[in-house]
Design a protein around this nucleic acid. Structure first.
Lengths: 142, 142
DNA sequence: GCCTCATGTAACTTATGATATTACATGACT
DNA sequence: AGTCATGTAATATCATAAGTTACATGAGGC
C-alpha cells in the first residue's frame, strides 16, 4: 500500500511516462517489482503502460476522484490487521467465543480505517507533496 | 493474541492447575509454546505457575477486571496492522506525505480498536463460552 | 535420597509470506 | 534490424512466527 502510493505520486510529479527502471530506482527496489505492482493498477484503469521508445507508465485517472480506498480495493483488499484469528479448532467453543469477540472489534476498526481511506484523494497527497517541497526550499531560501 | 486468549479461557474453565502439556493438546500445539506464551503473562501477574506434582498453570487475576487491552499490553503491544509504512527513503518528500496520511488513518483506527479491547473483559468472554455450551447441549437435549 | 512430574529456557528447525532477482518473450519505436 | 520497454514466469532471498528438541531446575511422592 505505502509502496504503491509512493509509486503513484512519483508518477504524478512528472508528466512524461516513467519507466519501471526509473521508478524502481527512486524506491530502491527492482523494476520487476514495479511492473508487478502497476500491472494490477493498470487492469483497474488507474495507470497506463506503453512499450518501446519513450514508453513507460503514466497515470490515467483523475487524481481528485481517486481515494486511498480505491487504491486499496485495486490491490485486492488485503487483510488490514496483523493480529489474525486462530483457526485451529473450529468446533472449540472457546475459540468461537474469542474469535467472535475479536472479530467485532476488528470489524469496527476496519470500517473506520476504510472510511478514513475514502476521505483522502491522490490529489490531496500530491498537494501535500508540493507543500512539503515549498516549505523545504522556503527554509533554505530565507 | 487469539491464541493467548484461547489458553486463558481454557484455564478459566477448570479450577485446578493445568499443565502446559494439557493446554498444548487442547490447542493443537506444543507445550514449549504454551510455556513461552504464559511466561510473559506470569511476569505481568495474570497467571501463576507451580512446578512438580499437581503443578501447572492457574489464573490469578480477577477476570472481571482484566480486559483484552490489558492482555494486549502484556503481550508487548505488538503492531496492529498488516499494512506497514515504507521506510526506505526517509528524506523522500513523497514518502513523507504518504506515510503521514496513512499514519493518521491507522492512528484513528488503532485507537478505536484498543477502545473496543478495553470494553471486553475476560469474564465476559468466559460467560460467552458458557452460553455457547448451554445452547449446544440445549439443542441436543430438546 | 531418589524418582517422577512439571516448569524454564536456550538452541535449533521448519513454515510461511513478502520481497527481490533473473531470465526471457513480446511489442513499439527509430 | 536494433534497441528500449513492458509482461510474466520461475526462482531465490529474507524476515518473522511457529514448532521442536533438549536439557537444566525445582517440587512433591515414595
Amino acid at each position: 500500500m505505502s509502496g504503491v502510493l509512493h509509486v503513484l505520486l512519483h508518477m504524478a510529479e512528472r508528466r512524461e511516462p516513467a519507466t519501471s527502471e526509473a521508478l524502481a530506482k527512486s524506491m530502491n527496489t527492482n523494476s520487476a517489482v514495479i511492473r508487478r505492482i502497476l500491472a494490477g493498477l493498470r487492469d483497474k484503469g488507474f495507470v497506463q503502460s506503453e512499450k518501446g521508445h519513450g514508453g513507460g507508465w503514466t497515470l490515467c485517472c483523475d487524481l481528485t476522484k481517486v481515494s486511498l480506498l480505491d487504491i486499496y480495493a485495486a490491490l485486492g483488499s488485503p487483510s488490514l490487521f496483523a493480529i489474525g484469528n486462530r483457526s485451529g479448532s473450529p468446533d472449540c467453543l472457546v475459540e468461537q467465543a474469542v474469535n467472535s469477540a475479536l472479530d467485532q472489534a476488528f470489524h469496527d476498526a476496519g470500517h473506520l480505517l476504510l472510511a478514513r481511506f475514502s476521505e483522502v484523494t491522490l490529489a490531496m497527497l500530491s498537494a501535500n507533496v508540493r507543500n512539503r517541497n515549498r516549505s523545504r526550499s522556503g527554509t533554505t531560501r530565507s
